[in-house]
């Protein structure tokens, strides 16, 4: 079971600024272990951010994103007290969803 994300969401002017840390290995599939065996690829493939049932960000990621990714973005709208919900799915079909309140 993956660790929770660390989410911060703040109203800045007429937008909401969201900063998310995700706990994930993001293994590229290019590296080898000490025995010379390829370490299989394991990375987040899809990220979705929902605000009031509306998708405000959808992303497809690849193996070039660093371990323990940090994602920062803004979307128009959002008010203090609103909820945002973030979901990631990796190439093992493991998934994690966390929610945060906009401050």
């Amino acid at each position: 079971m993956a660790d929770p994300m660390k989410i911060r969401a703040n109203v800045v002017g007429d937008s909401t600024e969201v900063k998310v840390l995700m706990s994930h290995e993001m293994e590229t599939g290019q590296r080898k272990d000490a025995q010379g065996k390829v370490i299989p690829a394991w990375f987040i493939q899809n990220v979705r951010v929902v605000h009031n049932d509306k998708v405000v960000l959808a992303a497809q990621w690849g193996p070039s994103v660093a371990k323990n990714p940090f994602l920062s973005f803004k979307f128009k709208g959002g008010a203090k007290g609103d909820k945002i919900r973030i979901t990631w799915v990796d190439n093992h079909n493991d998934t994690r969803t966390d929610e945060a309140t906009i401050a």
């Binding site: 660790d3 660390k6 900063k19 840390l21 706990s23 371990k67 323990n68 940090f70 920062s72």
Partner: peptide
């Protein structure tokens, strides 16, 4: 500096 994974 922004988004230090140490927080995890």
């Amino acid at each position: 500096q922004d988004g230090n994974p140490a927080e995890l």
